[in-house]
Design a protein around this nucleic acid. Structure first.
Lengths: 250, 250
DNA sequence: CTTAGTTCGTCTCAAGTTGAGTAGTACTCG
DNA sequence: CGAGTACTACTCAACTTGAGACGAACTAAG
């Protein structure tokens, strides 16, 4: 093959359709014990009126910065604001099928964001119509965003197993019970409270005690719970594995 | 860098589209029990004479197809040939820093390929200078390809743990010992033969027996080994974890 | 042919991890 | 106050892991 330079020297832009690069963000949070994704309502064609993942064109910036910018714009939270600092953002996958956008070829770099409960985006946002939607109600999205969302959810579920990412969904100080609720919401199944407790405390660097407790018990009763903050581990050893599901294996 | 500077001085970005999309491929194989990556020698500026990952511009095709095409071109193996059918190819990550290519903005979608031992690419290849290099000798690559390779290696090491991907590195029929050698080469450490044997056979769907054995014992002695082929599992349950390394955790 | 050295496949055992259950206690709500 | 709930700590049996040992099958060298 020709290498990039010889290829570029003979490259004639008119021979190829123009091409654009965008970022799309799968932003996840937990509201009312349900895993929710940030969606925007499309005002223009194509897919007018349908919901889509927030996203936009990449400017003179890194891809990571573009994703951060889009997220800040859509949620209406200013960069530098404390809430956004705690958001975990990572690249998910790139989608570039020639026909994924009917107008022109668009290569979209999808990002995955994990956030603690954020304010409703409509207040003060650039985007008039952005809101959090429970993931099981997020269907029939524009473009190939159903696929993007599915990939994002699978990534999120897998990452809870072997990284301390669940701590990105809760406040700076949290109880083991709140952390367990994150796992239950993302995985969609309840966990054995006692075993979860034992496991979390036994993984080095996952959580560290603050020495304090909640000021009152749970809403429906129960004692005050000890408070923890995220530890310094980047990987969980041993991992917290999802309950085994044979059908996931093949 | 004199050459690169003068090259850049005569380069007029306005003649070209403001942004291009390429695919780069981290193709891995095992030769002589060493993990090797496919590299090409660059003939032109920038980075002339340096080694780089094979790659090229995306045409009117999916990103996956572009990666397949590049790999076939660089290895000189025709698509449809049996060898290439067995190659596992997956998207790795996208690199799009504005300054990663000095000529213009290039967004590169990196792919990761796992192949059984392939012929030397020089025979019959389009690329005059492509060859397999042991990964620990693959340094000082062009562009940001050192980072891309490092990301690819980490992904490969992690994927061996929880997917049956190691079977993509061996022939259609293989022995447990050959499979163990794959793990040892990729992870860079020896594994306990007995425990590995037990583990592989205990994971449902990882390997299935062919009922046959090798026609002779190992080169340095030992009995004939039973032959297996890849099973139908897509995930390994339970996983084959790397020997724990505390320093990987934080 | 004999011997040394290698590998395959199997087994054993102690240590650790898991899932499921139990229980005491401290809370909230009505 | 009583009922219900949640936090935390436990127990126990089943399973998984890592390390070592072993016999048999084989190759290569003497």
């Amino acid at each position: 093959m020709q290498d990039q330079d010889s290829y570029l020297a003979g490259y004639n832009p008119s021979k190829y359709p123009s091409l654009a690069v965008t970022v799309d963000v799968v932003a996840l949070t937990i509201r009312d014990a349900k895993l929710c994704v940030l969606l925007v309502e499309r005002g223009a064609q194509p897919f007018a009126g349908q919901r889509a993942l927030p996203g936009g064109f990449v400017k003179e910036e890194t891809l990571d910065d573009a994703a951060k910018r889009e997220l800040a714009e859509e949620t209406g939270v200013k960069p530098g604001h404390g809430d956004l600092e705690r958001v975990h953002l990572e690249q998910l996958k790139t989608y570039g099928n020639p026909d994924r956008d009917p107008r022109m070829r668009i290569v979209s770099v999808a990002y995955l964001a994990f956030a603690p409960s954020l304010p409703d985006p409509t207040a003060g946002s650039d985007a008039a119509l952005a809101y959090w939607v429970p993931v099981d109600e997020a269907k029939d999205l524009a473009f190939d965003h159903d696929d993007v969302l599915a990939d994002g959810l699978e990534r999120a579920r897998a990452k809870l197993e072997y990284t301390p990412l669940a701590t990105a969904f809760v406040n700076e100080e949290f109880t083991i019970g709140e952390l367990r609720q994150v796992y239950a919401s993302v995985w969609g199944e309840d966990l054995h409270a006692g075993n979860f407790h034992r496991k979390v405390l036994s993984v080095p660097g996952f959580v560290e005690s603050t020495g304090t407790t909640t000021s009152r018990g749970g809403e429906r009763g129960g004692p005050k719970a000890k408070l923890y903050r995220a530890g310094d581990a980047k990987l969980l050893h041993p991992a917290l594995l999802r309950p085994t599901r044979e059908d996931r294996v093949r």
